[in-house]
Design a protein around this nucleic acid. Structure first.
Length: 594
RNA sequence: GGGGACGUAGCUCAGUUGGUUAGAGCGCUGCCCUGUCACGGCAGAGGUCGCGGGUUCGAGCCCCGUCGUCCCCGCCA
């Protein structure tokens, strides 16, 4: 292959096949860089040595496919190209075959930096020829293979579940598949194999996994595609810790395959702590946590500063930002205030902290609590009295809003603190387990409690016993957990409900009548009655893992044929209208008025 | 559904206050070149300024609408 030859092969007769990466024509001497997925080798065509081959090479152009016969030759010391793996040798061609020509491509796969996303996606086959993309898909393959091997070696059985299944109105919108045989009936593509894998536990496959495609018809983001791949697993008789250990095991194997040595176990943190310290349920642990300063400020000072007593005073630092100019600080402050909806929040940076007569006496203490270094930007947020409706005296609102500010500033000054820069070591990857998620989520619009994870999640035993399920839904903790990497949610899972009575109670608590539950999940409730073992599991986004490992900022970089933000495939041009005949077969009428 | 950025040559982009024939780099085509590796030199081709409408003597530039790509919020059990 084009990337394989080394000085050791000197003198050998070889045949190389690949694409013309670049052609350098010196008249009676032509250099062709031949590329395949293994790398690039320089081929020399000398008019004196092989006039026929040289003549053919004159008409070769970038992306032509050629086969070239020749001899491996060591380059003179002065001609070695240290930038190329094969830079110490070259092929002296005796014969060359132009296997196929190529139109001039809209962009060159030989270039590193490519801009226009639209052109890349339309000519995806050219984009995928680029070294960067080839690298990403090699990582993806190695990671998937390592995970499959690890789970197989640890007693997990890979079992496929249907793509055409039953629509479940909970959660994300379903992609629907109309049935030809049953007029007006639809299959749905799975949002996840959730119910099937639980039924596999009932069936006695005590350790299941699947690298499974999932489909969700929701608006997209850089880290969300309508179809994506999950590493889905489930096991019987698990403690939460056993699932963590399993995931840590396969992630260690996966990262090792990508050249990174992780050291599990990963840090664990409850949901409540995550909100309090980071203001978000998926903390980016590469950055320092927020610190609650409420008690540091004396009651007198808080009163003087008109700080709302029901709300926390929070501080945090962004490291190594350096000195801010007066204008920059002013601009920052006004931006931040605007971002807080002008609701009376005050914000102090390091400079104001030291110079403000109110805070100066405390500056030392605060600096110590926040561990402020000389070049760090420190921020203290003091919620003022006078309550605009948006925060509604809710401390969570403050935690989350300040957490968002922490992330925004960290992003803004990423170049300065460099904490997001990859160094190629395990230190780049800060994993975290977030545990004890709330069981329920209040839907303010519909005025109902929803399942925060999904309705098959088991609540904490003691929260059932203390009656919170009925009296205090907001305080019920679920045996649900997320795994987070560098502020990205990689996956989530839970210990499931394995008893029919508990499951029925949860359905009821979600405002679902017994009849309704039976209609939607009757088959599942039935299954629970036939000796269901305790079970639990988790699902991790393979695409996101690979994205982070590849240092990419969008899933499109690690999915071969991704869709745009409007869920369009620009290469095959999907979706499209279909013929009236197709529609008739499916008993469908399209109403284009909306 | 909402907010923001962008859209000018194949690609990346510049284009002043609205004013003559819309430019650059890369790429492309032709010619020259025996040591290049982002080769070099000379010459040349290449434009529905996303699309539609409006204002104006005159629009790449101003206004309205629309389409597309990207990012964010909502949404994603």
């Amino acid at each position: 292959m084009c990337g394989d030859l080394r000085p050791l092969q000197e003198g050998e007769q070889v045949v190389l096949m690949g694409w013309v990466n670049r052609r350098r024509d010196h008249g009676s001497l032509i250099f062709l860089d031949l590329r395949d997925r293994s790398g690039i080798t320089q081929v020399v065509l000398d008019k004196e040595l092989s006039p026929e081959a040289h003549a053919k090479a004159e008409s070769a152009r970038p992306e032509y496919v050629v086969a070239c016969t020749g001899t491996v030759r060591l380059r003179d010391a002065s001609l070695i190209n240290p930038k190329m793996d094969t830079g110490a040798i070259e092929i002296v061609a005796s014969e060359i075959l132009l296997l196929n020509d190529a139109k001039t491509p809209p962009f060159s796969p030989a270039e590193d930096a490519i801009g226009n996303e639209e052109v890349r996606l339309k000519y995806r086959y050219l984009d995928l020829r680029r070294v960067e993309m080839q690298k990403n898909f090699r990582i993806r393959h190695e990671v998937a293979r390592a995970i499959r091997n690890y789970l197989s070696d640890n007693g997990f059985l890979e079992i496929e579940t249907p793509f055409m299944t039953r629509s479940t109105p909970e959660g994300a919108r379903d992609y629907l598949v109309p049935s030809r045989v049953h007029a007006g009936h639809f299959y749905a593509l799975p949002q996840s194999p959730q119910i099937f894998k639980q039924i596999l536990m009932v069936s006695g496959f005590d350790k299941y996994f699947q690298i499974a495609r999932c489909f969700r018809d929701e608006d997209l983001r850089a880290d969300r595609q309508p179809e994506f791949t999950q590493i889905d697993l489930e096991m019987t008789f698990p403690q939460q810790g056993l699932i963590f250990k399993t995931v840590e095991g396969f992630l260690k194997a996966a990262f090792k395959a990508a050249g990174i040595e992780l050291e599990p176990p990963f840090v664990q943190m409850t949901y409540d702590d995550a909100i309090r310290k980071y203001g978000i349920d998926k903390p980016d642990m590469r950055l320092p946590a927020m610190v609650e300063l409420t008690e540091t400020l004396t009651p007198e000072l808080r009163e003087k500063l008109r700080i709302e007593p029901a709300l926390p005073v929070l501080g945090f630092i962004i490291p190594s930002v350096g000195a801010l100019s007066g204008t920059e600080r002013k601009k920052l402050l006004s931006e931040v205030r605007a971002g807080f909806g002008d609701c009376g929040l005050d914000l102090l940076d390091t400079e104001r902290l030291k110079t403000s007569p109110d805070f100066a006496p405390l500056a030392g203490t605060i600096a110590e609590l926040l561990a402020v270094g000389a070049e760090d930007l420190s921020v203290v947020v003091t919620p003022k009295l006078g309550t605009p409706p948006m925060w509604n005296y809710d401390p969570q609102w403050i935690y989350k809003r300040v957490g968002q500010l922490r992330l925004d500033l960290a992003k803004k000054y990423a170049d300065k603190h460099g904490l997001f820069t990859q160094t190629g070591t395990a230190a780049d990857y800060k994993f975290l387990w977030v545990t004890d998620f709330p069981m329920y989520e209040w839907d303010e619009e519909k005025k109902v409690w929803n399942a925060a994870h999904h309705p098959f999640t088991s609540p904490h035993e003691e929260d059932i016993k203390t009656g919170k399920l009925v009296n205090d839904k907001g305080a019920v903790r679920a045996l649900a957990y997320d795994i987070v990497l560098n502020g990205t949610e990689l996956g989530s899972g839970s210990i499931r409900i394995h008893r029919k009575d508990v499951q029925a109670e949860i359905f009821r608590s979600l405002g679902m009548s017994d009849e309704e539950a039976k209609e939607r999940f009757g088959f599942f409730l039935d299954a629970l009655e036939y000796g269901t073992p305790p079970h639990g599991g988790i699902a991790l986004g393979l695409d996101r893992i690979v994205m982070i490992l590849a240092g990419a900022s969008s899933l499109r970089e690690v999915i071969a044929f991704p869709k745009t933000a409007k869920a369009i495939d620009l290469m095959v041009d999907a979706p499209t209208p279909v013929s009236d005949i197709q529609l008739r077969d499916l008993h469908l009428k399209v109403n284009t008025r909306t």
